[in-house]
Structure formats: structure tokens, C-alpha cells
């Protein structure tokens, strides 16, 4: 489904990604782990088409289509979804209006009729239950005054509504307490499907106890330095990144789980 070949990307002239190769098949869940500053978030942003980052070399394709030729919104309509690490607020724009605009943009792209306000309200209420969000949130401004956990749940709510082909979750577990982590994980597991791939970017392995990945990759210094199965994440928890020759400036991973 997603194929990344020799991807190089830089920001303000500084190269962050230095040749990433990654293949993700439909139905798979991949986890990308790595210390801070390794390029994890950059990879998510580049996949989604953030123009702050310049792709200098390499290829990204989704089901054979070259993503690098597409604008951010076109990639989204092709099925790329990014759950943000720090979801931004849009004051005065209700969540409901924002979500319906997004859903209808996708539907229009697929040649389906737009959903009217009443239809969408019904759908949105149902889906918000899946992530334990009070439907009252739908009427509030986008992320306006939301707690960290509410913002993350709101991101998963959006993924559930938009039904992407590839969901990229950028540090979705950061800043969550154990209860919120469970709710978010439940939402992500509900996303798992035969025809959908999930790419989780995380610093800590604790998320992977709840959402079990098929593949784990270690990103360091802008390159994937090791790939393996679920057990690789456990090993990282046990031994840190040091044994891979990678420096981790943050606390040891096990301290946070």
C-alpha cells in the first residue's frame, strides 16, 4: 500500500531524513520508534505533505500513485490521515462544522453526495461514543479549550469518521494517563481493518501493549537502523536504544511505562 524509497527530506537546509526505506501492506500495523530528534515526526509530516519540509530525494507512493505530486489536501482525499501530536485550535469553528466539511470534502472527491447537517450529527454522535467523547464536544470550537487527552481522542474521532487508507498516528500516546491511553487505543484498534494500514510513531513502547504492531522499526539519525517484530519493542524497553549505537537524550523508555 505505502512504499517509501530512499526518502531524503530537509528543513531550512538541514537534512533530517537521510534515506528512509519502508513498505507497508494493507491490514498491517507498523510502529516507528526512536529517540527524540531521530526524524519520527518529520517522517509523519512529510508523508502528509507539510510544505515546511523539502523532499530532496526519493519516492513515496500510495497504491502505486506518486504522493509527492499531490498537495496536502489531495493526499488526504486519497486516504492519508495524520493524527497530530499537538492538535491546533481553530477558535469559533465548531468541531461539528469542521468535521462535516472534512467528511464532505472526501465524499465529494469520491463522487458521493454530501451529508446534510442532521445525517452528519447522527453519525458524529455515534462515533464520539467510541472514543468516550461527550457529544457536547461536537459543538465546541475545534480543540478550543480541550485538555491534552481530549485533543488526542478528538484526533482518533476524526480518523474514525474519515476512514483513511493509511492512518499515521504521531505520538498519539504522549501526555495521556493510563485511562485515556486505553480509550485512545480502543479507538485505534477499531480502526484496524483488512484494507487499512496504520503507522504509529512513538517514543515509548507502552502504547504497543495496547495496540500490538506487526512490525517495529527503529529510526535514528534519519535512517531506519533496525526492523523487527513486536519483540523488538520489548527489547528496546528492556535495553534502551544504546545497544543499537543510538543515543537517547531522554529518560530511559522503561521509566515512563
Amino acid at each position: 500500500m505505502l512504499s517509501i524509497k530512499n526518502l531524503h527530506a530537509s528543513v531550512e537546509g538541514e537534512e533530517i531524513l537521510k534515506g528512509i526505506n519502508l513498505e507497508i501492506k494493507a491490514g498491517e500495523v507498523h510502529a516507528i520508534m526512536g529517540p527524540n530528534g531521530s526524524g519520527k515526526s518529520t517522517l509523519s509530516q512529510v508523508l502528509a505533505g507539510n510544505e515546511t519540509f523539502e523532499v530532496t530525494q526519493g519516492e513515496i507512493s500510495l497504491n502505486g500513485e506518486n504522493l509527492l505530486d499531490l498537495e496536502t489536501e489531495e493526499r488526504a482525499r486519497e486516504g492519508i490521515f495524520l493524527a497530530f501530536q499537538y492538535p491546533v485550535e481553530i477558535p469559533g469553528v465548531s468541531n461539528l462544522q469542521f468535521l462535516r466539511t472534512a467528511v464532505n470534502a472526501m465524499r465529494t472527491h469520491r463522487g458521493e453526495p454530501e451529508m446534510n447537517a442532521a445525517e452528519f450529527m447522527k453519525l458524529a454522535k455515534e462515533v464520539s461514543k467510541q472514543v468516550d467523547l461527550d457529544p457536547a464536544f461536537l459543538k465546541r470550537g475545534v480543540n478550543e479549550g480541550f485538555s491534552g487527552g481530549e485533543k488526542k481522542r478528538n484526533e482518533i474521532l476524526q480518523a474514525l469518521l474519515l476512514q483513511p487508507k493509511l492512518a499515521i498516528l504521531d505520538e498519539t500516546d504522549s501526555g495521556l494517563d493510563i485511562d485515556a491511553l486505553q480509550v485512545v487505543s480502543k479507538g485505534v484498534n477499531a480502526l484496524r481493518a483488512e484494507d487499512r494500514a496504520i503507522l504509529m510513531v512513538t517514543h515509548y513502547q507502552r502504547l504497543l501493549n495496547h495496540i500490538v504492531p506487526d512490525h517495529v522499526h527503529v529510526l535514528a539519525g534519519g535512517r531506519i537502523v533496525k526492523s523487527g517484530g513486536r519483540e523488538l519493542a520489548l527489547e528496546l524497553e528492556e535495553r534502551g536504544y544504546g545497544w543499537l549505537g543510538v543515543k537517547d537524550e531522554e529518560a530511559t523508555p522503561s521509566a515512563a511505562s
Binding site: 496536502t72 489536501e73 488526504a76 497530530f84 477558535p91 469542521f98 472534512a102 472526501m106 475545534v142 474519515l162
Partner: peptide, 29 residues
């Protein structure tokens, strides 16, 4: 902000519609 625009576009919304939505939200009161 660039972040607001990126969020909207990442959700499939046209840039034009995004600006208009953000400005309308700002004026809501």
C-alpha cells in the same frame, strides 16, 4: 496560522474553504 491551514488541508479541505472557515470562526461572536 500555517498549523491551522495544515490541519484543515490534511483533513481534505480546500485552502480557500479553510481560510474562509477560519475567518468565519473568528467572527462568530
Amino acid at each position: 496560522s500555517d498549523e491551522q491551514m495544515f490541519l484543515c488541508r490534511q483533513r481534505g479541505i480546500d485552502p480557500e474553504q479553510a481560510v474562509s472557515m477560519i475567518v468565519n470562526g473568528f467572527c462568530k461572536e
